[in-house]
């Protein structure tokens, strides 16, 4: 089996789920990652880790469990940026230290405008 760090694997599996656009079974994910030459159980482990991280939801569909991303890539990205921006001294220690000192409110409004469909 070609060596791949767990983090890279998780990112790769997420990418497959996002690209698929529909819930996938473990077998289907394994199939899509054919060229990576991964063990079936490895794919299963990665999917259960992602489920535990609440970024993937497991659906019980007839015979097999299917997995789907909890949010679209765009939604998750926008949520992450908002989280980075909502760091305030009143609430909590800043999460992140920014390059550029635009007001968080202005940035937040911009993100919301940018992600609105």
């Amino acid at each position: 089996m070609a060596y791949m760090a767990l983090g890279d694997l998780e990112r790769e599996v997420m990418r497959q789920l996002w690209d698929a656009g529909e819930p996938l079974t473990v077998r289907q994910v394994h199939e899509r990652l054919r060229e990576r030459d991964l063990a079936y159980t490895t794919v299963m482990t990665v999917l259960s880790r992602l489920t535990k991280k609440r970024v993937v939801v497991q659906q019980n569909d007839d015979r097999a469990y299917k997995y789907a991303p909890a949010q679209s890539r765009e939604e998750m990205t926008a949520g992450l940026m908002l989280d980075a921006l909502t760091a305030s001294g009143d609430q909590d220690a800043a999460l992140a230290y920014f390059m550029g000192q635009l007001s968080p409110d202005a940035l937040k409004a911009a993100i919301e405008a940018a992600t609105k469909k």
């Binding site: 550029g100 000192q101 635009l102 007001s103 409110d105 202005a106 940035l107 409004a109 911009a110 405008a113």
Partner: peptide, 21 residues
């Protein structure tokens, strides 16, 4: 550029840290 390139929404408040920047 990082501050200029952000498309400011109309209802956004004036930059309170403008002095810092």
């Amino acid at each position: 550029r990082l501050s200029d390139a952000v498309p400011l929404a109309e209802d956004a408040r004036a930059d309170p840290t403008g002095d810092a920047r």
